[in-house]
Simulated scan of single mutants.
Amino acid sequence: MLRALTLAFALLASTVQAGERYVSMGSSYAAGLGIAPYQDGAPTRCTRSTRNYAQQLAAKRGLTLVDVGCSGAKTSAILQPWGELPAQIDAVTADTALVTVTIGGNDIGLVGGLYGASCRKLGEANCAPATTPGEADYAALKTAMTGMVAAIRERAPKAKIVLVEYPTILPLQGACAATPLSDADADAARTKAARLSAITREAAASGGAMVITTDDFSRGHDACAAQPWMNGYPAPGAAPYHPNLAAMTAIAQALDAALP
């Protein structure tokens, strides 16, 4: 642990310079599902927004961005090919200066579980089944994320690695009209989100990476808030239970403030 912390402080002390290579990886929460327009030339199913947090940070810092985040991705898609898509980590090269990752929600059915729960609450048809990860699932996620950080470090020893948490989706208690959920389903989603944040922080600490604690600073901007950073259900023209443009901008600002 001491070695990991020492490495993290040493890497964060150096400045990320304009023009350096920046790789953004992850799921739809990194790609920017529902935030049009999408990037030309990107795989259609990845829905990579031109205004996701990586795009905004790269523009502000003058970084050379390689954006490989993809909607629906699990941690396995970081290290292994996913269908026709190469492993996201293939974008990380020895000269990469910065890597950001938002991943893990799909491994435990966080957003898919919310979709299904709201679908059932509203009496809609063909709803996704409930997802209840067990301790083995959380342990597997921790192993996968820890291995991911180690693999990134091996490919790019000098890179700053930053794990970006998922923004807060629901208020601390209950739900609202924008989030049609039973109390049990809302509590289950909060448990998943809390476990994901804890695992993200543990994985970062294990490999000398940094964490953007989005789960903390986005509280009060959940889907039920007066100024939400999260879409509710349904979300016409957007993506239910996904971050909106305000969330992406806030994350980009937090990254810019945290990086030297």
Score class of each variant (00 low, 15 high):
Leu2Pro: 13
Ile169Val: 15
Asp137Ala: 15
Ala159Arg: 05
Leu63His: 06
Thr179Pro: 05
Gly34Trp: 03
Ala198His: 03
Gly207Phe: 10
Thr214Glu: 08
Arg3Pro: 01
Asn126Ser: 14
Ile78Met: 12
Val16Tyr: 01
Asp183Ser: 14
Gly19Phe: 00
Pro228Ser: 12
Ala87Gly: 10
Gly174Pro: 13
Gly104Asn: 06
Gly34Gln: 06
Ala225Asp: 06
Cys46Val: 09
Glu84His: 08
Ile103Asp: 10
Arg190Leu: 02
Ala246Cys: 01
Gln253Arg: 14
Trp82Pro: 00
Met25Leu: 13
Ala246Gly: 01
Leu172Val: 13
Ala77Glu: 06
Asp187Phe: 01
Met210Lys: 03
Pro133Val: 12
Val16Lys: 04
Ala254Met: 06
Phe217Pro: 05
Gln88Lys: 03
Ala8Ser: 13
Gln17Tyr: 02
Gly69Phe: 00
Gly232Val: 03
Ala226Leu: 10
Pro43Met: 05
Leu114Phe: 08
Tyr38Ile: 11
Met230Thr: 07
Ser27Phe: 00
Ala226Pro: 02
Thr100Ile: 05
Glu165Gln: 15
Gly26His: 08
Gly105Ile: 02
Leu172Thr: 14
Val149Phe: 04
Gly104Val: 10
Arg120Trp: 04
Ala159Cys: 04
Asp256Trp: 02
Arg48Ile: 12
Gln173Ile: 08
Ile78Glu: 01
Met210Ser: 13
Ser206Gln: 10
Val162Pro: 09
Ala136Pro: 02
Ala144Ile: 01
Thr179Gly: 03
Leu11Trp: 04
Arg51Trp: 01
Lys192Trp: 11
Leu245Arg: 03
Ala36Asn: 13
Leu33Gly: 05
Arg190Pro: 08
Ala117Asn: 11
Thr44Trp: 02
Asp95Tyr: 08
Ala42Arg: 10
Lys121Phe: 15
Gly232Phe: 05
Asp107Leu: 07
Gly174His: 09
Leu114Cys: 04
Asp67Trp: 04
Ala94Gln: 09
Thr179Met: 13
Ala150Tyr: 10
Thr47Gln: 14
Pro37Ser: 04
Ala250Leu: 07
Ser28Trp: 02
Asn106Leu: 03
Glu165Leu: 05
Tyr138His: 12
Ser218Thr: 15
Leu79Cys: 06
Tyr115Ile: 14
Ala31Pro: 04
Ile251Thr: 08
Leu141Trp: 11
Ser76Gly: 05
Asn244Met: 02
Arg48Val: 06
Ser118Asp: 07
Ala205Cys: 07
Asp187Ala: 15
Tyr53His: 11
Ala193Asp: 05
Arg61Tyr: 03
Ala193Met: 12
Val149Ser: 10
Gly34Arg: 06
Asp107Ile: 07
Ala246Glu: 05
Leu5Glu: 15
Val111Ser: 05
Ala189Gln: 09
Gly113Ser: 08
Ala31Asp: 05
Thr96Asp: 13
Ile78Thr: 03
Asp95Asn: 14
Ala58Ile: 04
Ala188Pro: 02
Ala54Asp: 08
